[in-house]
Design a protein around this nucleic acid. Sequence first.
DNA 1: CGTATGACGTGCA
DNA 2: GTGCACGCCATAC
Length: 84
Amino acid sequence: MGFKDKVLEVVRKIPEGHTLSYKEVAKLAGNKSAYRAVGNILNRNRNPNIPCHRVIRSDGKIGGFNKGSREKIKFLKKEGSILI
DNA sequence: CGTATGACGTGCA
DNA sequence: GTGCACGCCATAC
């Protein structure tokens, strides 16, 4: 159990229709300054149970996605969590 | 063990 | 308002 698992758990707890920024996730994970690592972890970690598409940048931008930002945008728009 | 990387964030020009 | 550059942390190899 480390920062990685904590981040994944936090992201997994994100309810539908709600999005969190990498910084927020890092803060909830215990390291508010590790937002850099959050993106890294989500990128390397391919866990289908982790709705990583609900994690966006603080700017409101999508950021990136394993399968392609298109899918991420699609999911967010479908859930009504984003206004792009 | 040490180096390099990255789906970020903030500041400054 | 937009663009560029730097700094930050943890993970993976």
